[in-house]
């Protein structure tokens, strides 16, 4: 080779985006939607849509509520999301209503604030006392769960008037009003993104030391992440109230694991740093569609858990095999 020969430039730099982890969940959701429509032709009909939406929204918001804590890394996880839904439901029915705080513009913000406050407590202990998130939020889980039963040993069959209003719809069933809560949650997230907060959470979750040495206040960001998650859980609690139109201490806790499952299904890294809310929302939709499909097929509800679990395992395996190409090389070097 002579010096004059033009040599090809080195390979393109930094353009190789990993294939989207959303791909799997989008395909699965689409298939399930079709399956549901086949089994139940009226699945999306206006008379059923409000009920369907009502069922979906608390799960979707619970999934969103789990996102910030997981994204913030360091073993971040908020197990207390489920019981927090329950506590918000009970406070709305058993404390705010008797106190005469039934107006939507008063009690809805209060419920969201309550969620944010509980999230902030979790966040403070995780970020400033530096205890393991899984232990801290397990503690909160038990406290909230117990508290809910103390406040309301028996289900109470009344709900504030805004709950009834939110369970209605516009446009003859095509626009269920319960979706407003989901929209509110998404707006909250978009706001956090626009303020640059989400980027900070990702940075902290991605490499906390790099963030720290770049001048990011790691503790404060983690704290904020849990508080944001709490606020979203507050919205989810409102959605739960809309759904059951009453107060019930036993429903909330079931949402914790379903929410984590939805986040994992959505392709967010459980180790933090990677992902947004689109994936977890689709993940929640997947879980929801499986459930409605199985109940339409009159499969025993006992099987639903088994199916949920299997789908979760399958999806996570597929996701990781997509994302593993880079990681495998490093593993090979160590494993030899």
């Amino acid at each position: 080779m002579t010096a004059a020969v033009a040599v090809p430039r080195r390979r393109a730099v930094g353009l190789r985006m990993p294939r989207s982890p959303l791909a799997v969940v989008v395909v699965v959701t689409a298939c399930l939607l079709v399956a549901n429509l086949v089994v139940t032709p009226g699945f999306l009909a206006p008379d059923r849509l409000p009920g369907t939406a009502e069922l979906f929204v608390p799960l979707a918001l619970a999934a969103m509520a789990s996102v910030p804590s997981i994204l913030s890394g360091g073993g971040g996880l908020d197990l207390s999301v489920g019981p927090l839904l329950g506590i918000v439901n009970i406070v709305a029915v058993a404390i705010l209503m008797p106190a005469g705080l039934v107006a939507a513009e008063v009690s809805i913000p209060l419920c969201v604030l309550l969620g944010a406050a509980v999230g902030a407590i979790n966040g403070a202990v995780v970020a400033f006392v530096r205890l393991q998130p899984i232990v801290v939020t397990l503690g909160t889980y038990l406290v909230l769960d117990g508290l809910a039963l103390v406040l309301m040993p028996q289900p109470v069959g009344t709900a504030p008037p805004w709950a009834a209003w939110l369970s209605g719809s516009w446009l003859g069933g095509f626009a269920p009003r319960s979706l407003l809560l989901l929209v509110a949650g998404c707006l909250l997230w978009v706001l956090a993104r626009r303020l640059g907060f989400v980027t900070l959470v990702r940075a902290v979750g991605s490499d906390a030391r790099a963030a720290f040495t770049s001048g990011v206040r790691v503790g404060l960001v983690r704290f904020g992440a849990y508080a944001l998650g709490g606020a979203l859980a507050g919205l989810a609690g409102l959605a739960l109230t809309v759904l059951i139109n009453s107060g019930d201490a036993t429903v909330g806790p079931q949402y914790t694991l379903a929410a984590v499952a939805a986040v994992a299904l959505g392709g967010n890294a459980l180790s933090g740093g990677r992902g947004g809310i689109a994936g977890p929302l689709l993940g929640a939709l997947t879980l929801f569609l499986i459930q409605s499909l199985l109940s339409a097929l009159a499969v025993s509800s006992l099987w639903i858990q088994v199916v949920h679990g299997s789908v979760l395992l399958a999806a996570v395996c597929i996701n990781s095999s997509i994302g593993a190409r880079v990681g495998r090389r490093a593993a090979a070097i160590q494993g030899g």
């Binding site: 930094g14 990702r202 940075a203 790099a210 740093g273």
Partner: peptide, 9 residues
């Protein structure tokens, strides 16, 4: 080399 690998450049 301290970078946040998941963030964009």
């Amino acid at each position: 080399i301290l970078v946040a690998p998941d963030l964009t450049v």
